[in-house]
Structures are given as C-alpha cells and as structure tokens.
Design a protein around this nucleic acid. Sequence first.
DNA 1: CAGGATGGTTGGTACTACAAACCATGTCAA
DNA 2: TTGACATGGTTTGTAGTACCAACCATCCTG
Lengths: 145, 145
Amino acid sequence: MSSDDALEDALVRTSFRVAAMLTRIGAEHDLSLTQLRLLGILRDRRPRMTELAAFLGLDKSTLSGLVERAERRGLVARGRSPEDRRVVDVSITPKGRELAERIQQEIRAALAPFTSRLSADDRHLLTQLLDTVAGKTPAQHDTAP
Amino acid sequence: MSSDDALEDALVRTSFRVAAMLTRIGAEHDLSLTQLRLLGILRDRRPRMTELAAFLGLDKSTLSGLVERAERRGLVARGRSPEDRRVVDVSITPKGRELAERIQQEIRAALAPFTSRLSADDRHLLTQLLDTVAGKTPAQHDTAP
DNA sequence: CAGGATGGTTGGTACTACAAACCATGTCAA
DNA sequence: TTGACATGGTTTGTAGTACCAACCATCCTG
C-alpha cells in the first residue's frame, strides 16, 4: 500500500530486466547466469569450493557440477591445497579471464543505452543510492536534515 | 572504464541481490523464480500461452511444463478459447492469487530493511531514477511523448 | 588411537529450458 | 472447396541447475 511500495516494485522490475539482459549475454557465450557469476567471482578471488558455494548461495554439491563443467571448458582450474589435502581451490584460467572480461564489457555496453537516459549527475546519484541500499556505503554521509 | 561503469556494476550487483531474495522467498513457498514471475504476470492478465512465453522470454515448449506444474498445484487454470480452438489461455485461480499477494507482501517486507536505509526523499528519488532508466518515465520531468 | 568434525564428491530426484518433431486448427488462394 | 501453408500448443529428447542424503578422505581432539 501507499507509494512506499513503489521503490520495492521498481527494484524488482529493474532486477528482472537486468537479469534478462545478463541471461541473454551469457547465452550468447553458452554460459548460464550462474556460470557468469562464477567467472565474475573468480576474477579477483581464488576461493575453495565451500567459500564459492557461500558466495553464490548454493549447496556445495551444486558447485561440484558447476565447476566441473566450467573446468571441462577450460575456464577454471581446480587445485588441491598441499596443506590441507581435503581442500579444493578454484581459480580462473587465462581463457576464462579473457571471456569474463569480454562479457563484462558487453554487459556494460548493453546497459549503457538505459543508463545514458540519465545525466551524469543523476548517474552518479543513482550509483550512490544503490550502493547505500546495498549497504556498501556504510551510512551515506547524506544531506540529512 | 572510469567511474562511468560504476553505475552498471551497481545495477548488476543490486539485481543479483534482489534475485537472491526473490529466490529465497519463492523457495519458501516451493516456487521457482520463474513460477513467481508467472503468478505475478497473471495477477492482472489472462494471456494465451504464446503471449505468456513472450512476457517471460521463454520458449513456448517451456511454458507447457511450467503451466502444467502450476495447474497441478491449483495455482493457475487453462482454458480453451471457443473462437479459436487452438488457443489456450491461462488464468490465475483464487488460490494462486492469494499466494501471489502474500508473496508480494513478503517481498516488500524483505526489501524494506534495505530501502529504509534511505530517507523518504531519497527513496522517492531512487524510484524515479530507476523508472527513468527502465524507460517508464519518458524523461526526468515527463511531458508528451 | 578412536571418534568426531570438516571438505568435497556421488547418486537420486525434480525442475528449467531449448530445439525439433508433431498434431490440431485455422486461413488463403487457386 | 480443397490443397497448401500458417499458427498455437504439446511431446520428446537432451543438457544444465539445484537440492538432499549418503558417502569417502582428511584433519583434529581427547
């Protein structure tokens, strides 16, 4: 009720829109949304399977298959830790990194037509607001009255 | 590159976040994200299978199964048009509508902790900005097309 | 060392999604 | 009017996603 829900609805609509875009771009490279995220995460991390599952919010058993398929395509590599021989850490290969970077560019390019509807100031503002909502910005040094 | 990409990245991050939330809430009612959307669409429409497929961006063959499972749970109903007997139109049942509305409330409630990090003014502003990006609002200060 | 905890994989099930093949119905043109 | 084509959905087959429960292997503690 009330216009308070408008923001929630706008967030949901936006999310579906962006997700559809990501799904399409992923599909053009034979990647599911999850595999897209997998590569994105591995771009600046080298986690073990369990950490990866936590990042993605998936069961560890799901990860086995996910990583297995990505590995088969030469996008990621599995390595066993010498310290703890139970641990499997996952890293991105050069080929995987290249693909991830290309896709990131495509995503930005695909979103640009939409974001460019805003002025530079508004783009900056929107970024800040989204970061605040996400809790990225601790508290937003806002113009609080 | 540069900080211009920050907005694209923020949109993507936000989308994943919201999608994760929707997936969780759906799972609590044994609904996939797609089924959630299905119910959402049917809340104010009564489309035929092909239209539904277009709305969801899915192949029509996917819809058969999707609707079939939802129908088996009593959430939607299929009806054949008397004019064109090839056409199958899909409608939401009272039970389905009730569930859809409950879930919508849950979604709003789940997002509230995040959106409430903003002031009322900022919430309003963010809504406007998102609507503009989505092309819902023609331009910041709308007028004739 | 025994027992338990931790890290991953395997096996089983259900769902999602697509493409191709397939009926049934509708439409149009000769 | 009828044959050819178009349209609307379903079926079938395959691959991937995702979960749970059961399972090995390795580590850690008492």
